[in-house]
């Protein structure tokens, strides 16, 4: 059911992704605030198929030189490219005090045993400002290989960015700043250099009382 309805290809599928802040020493859900969250563990045929976005509409929001989105897409495979529009939840009640942990967790699954490399590039006006590269090994569980990046510390740039964003008095001002803030994640097979997933993230601030929201799109080139 997940094919065409979620972020994934027959080789690698995103199961969960979240960016959060948490009061250390009390790792229960009550003290954890999710800025953004994708959970793709309970998909059914009732879920809608993903809409598509022409990748050329967002080229300039991501690095355009060597290794940029255009070059990546031309190399393909095109079914590995996705766009996520996040409505981030900045409405946290957790006090920002020493000891608060800012983290990112993600989980992927695959029928294949690989070593994967995950690159996350934070971009401002389409230009990369910081990159994190992580390597993950597979763990066999319930008939498939799981790749888990657990509680990866958020970089200082992002923490400061969130702080400054939250200081803005109006949501439209936050959205205006977020218009030029994007993140590009590229997951490759470390040993073959094959691209497994490429996820482009763009943002607005959530106005919902139900926390972070998102839409997922396939990136296409007609």
């Amino acid at each position: 059911a997940w094919q065409g309805r979620s972020i994934g290809t027959p080789k690698l599928r995103l199961v969960e992704f979240m960016a959060f802040m948490e009061q250390q020493g009390e790792p229960d859900a009550y003290n954890k605030h999710l800025y953004v969250h994708i959970s793709q563990s309970n998909l059914s045929y009732n879920d809608a198929l993903l809409e598509s976005v022409d990748v050329r509409q967002i080229y300039d929001k991501f690095p355009e030189k060597k290794g940029g989105l255009k070059e990546l897409y031309e190399k393909g495979p095109p079914n590995a490219f996705f766009l996520v529009k996040f409505w981030a939840d900045l409405n946290t009640s957790i006090q920002d005090e020493p000891g608060v942990f800012y983290g990112v967790s993600s989980q992927y699954e695959s029928p294949e045993n690989m070593t994967i490399t995950c690159s996350s590039k934070v971009c401002s006006f389409g230009k990369q400002v910081v990159e994190k590269v992580e390597t993950e090994y597979a763990r066999f569980e319930n008939g498939r290989f799981l790749y888990r990046i657990h509680r990866s510390p958020m970089c200082e740039y992002l923490i400061n960015f969130i702080h400054k964003l939250k200081q803005l008095p109006e949501k439209y001002m936050m959205n205006s700043v977020l218009e030029n803030f994007t993140i590009l994640q590229v997951v490759t097979n470390r040993d073959t250099q094959e691209l497994l997933l490429c996820i482009a993230y763009v943002f607005e601030v959530s106005t919902s009382e139900h926390g972070a929201q998102h839409h997922i799109y396939r990136l296409v080139k007609d």
Partner: peptide
């Protein structure tokens, strides 16, 4: 930063791109 980008609102994007879901 660059100031010459076309605003997202003026790009060809699905209507849903501007509609925040009511719940996840």
């Amino acid at each position: 930063g660059r100031q010459d980008q076309v605003p997202m609102r003026k790009r060809q994007l699905p209507a849903s791109f501007w509609e925040e879901p009511r719940s996840s």
